[in-house]
Simulated assay, not measured.
Amino acid sequence: MITYAESIQRPDAAIFQGYCHLPLDRCVAHIEERLTANDYRTHEVYGSRGESIVNKDSRDSKAITPKHDEDLAFYMYEAVLGYFNQNFAAQPSDSLVLAQHEFFAYPRGVGLKMHSDDHALSADGKVLARDEHRGITAILYLNSEFTGGQINFPKQDVSIEPTAGKLVIFPSNKNFRHEVRPILSGWRYSYQRIYGVLKTDGKNVGFA
């Protein structure tokens, strides 16, 4: 049965900020190549029945399928695993399962309204749909040649200035609602990986 564990909902969990020293040039080159080829999609949000829809009032960034980079994927996995073990009631049998990974390109004028990564909200604040496979979000910023685009967590009173190599990790749930301020100039590139937590008790397997 798929359920949310109480531990993953902790409102006082930290927002991790670190720095990745791996080269990011290949990621940037891949994004710009895909943008030039018009090989991207406008990012979807969930509709009232859980269907995936395009809603430019909520998000108008460009979503791009990543080119696999084993070193980068391993670095981000290890960082998220360390974050999970430090902040939540992890058991030896728990494991992280990749639920989503994409590159995002934000052009000038585009931001992202207040949201949580595991569910979408209607205009009046009601939950439209929840993805229970999403538990922890990791965002790696890939470039610095832009202005604006800060990620803001109002409940935690945290605003983060994105620069190339900065890694931010936080729970995907409603306690960590956030927004992306509009880009003022240039393009902002990022790599997002969202993990679910696979929990086993010897008999049952489910996501937390």
Score class of each variant (00 low, 15 high):
79 A>H: 06
131 D>T: 07
143 N>D: 06
204 N>I: 07
7 S>K: 05
181 R>G: 05
179 E>A: 15
137 T>H: 06
141 Y>L: 07
144 S>D: 12
47 G>P: 04
38 N>V: 01
100 Q>Y: 12
207 F>Y: 14
116 S>L: 05
190 S>G: 07
87 N>A: 06
165 G>W: 11
47 G>M: 01
72 L>F: 11
157 D>V: 13
48 S>D: 12
10 R>Y: 08
84 F>L: 00
140 L>N: 00
107 P>A: 12
98 L>P: 00
98 L>V: 02
58 S>Y: 09
99 A>W: 05
31 I>G: 01
119 H>E: 13
131 D>V: 06
153 F>I: 13
166 K>M: 10
18 G>N: 08
3 T>K: 13
53 I>T: 07
124 D>N: 15
42 T>N: 09
71 D>G: 07
101 H>N: 14
177 R>A: 13
202 G>T: 04
88 F>A: 04
105 A>D: 03
148 G>A: 06
189 Y>K: 03
127 V>E: 12
160 I>N: 01
137 T>K: 06
201 D>K: 05
4 Y>P: 00
164 A>K: 14
59 R>W: 04
69 D>E: 14
193 R>Y: 11
116 S>P: 05
163 T>E: 11
73 A>P: 01
127 V>G: 09
27 C>W: 02
19 Y>V: 07
58 S>E: 07
57 D>S: 13
204 N>T: 11
189 Y>C: 04
67 K>F: 12
24 L>P: 01
4 Y>T: 08
156 Q>C: 09
18 G>F: 10
40 Y>H: 09
156 Q>H: 13
22 L>V: 03
88 F>Q: 03
31 I>Y: 03
139 I>A: 02
34 R>M: 14
93 S>I: 01
33 E>F: 13
122 S>L: 06
94 D>S: 00
135 G>H: 04
3 T>A: 12
152 N>V: 13
53 I>V: 15
27 C>A: 15
17 Q>A: 13
142 L>S: 00
185 S>E: 14
18 G>V: 14
21 H>C: 08
154 P>Q: 03
91 Q>W: 02
1 M>C: 09
73 A>C: 10
94 D>E: 02
112 L>C: 11
58 S>L: 10
50 G>A: 05
70 E>I: 08
16 F>I: 10
82 G>E: 09
196 G>T: 01
140 L>I: 11
91 Q>N: 11
21 H>G: 01
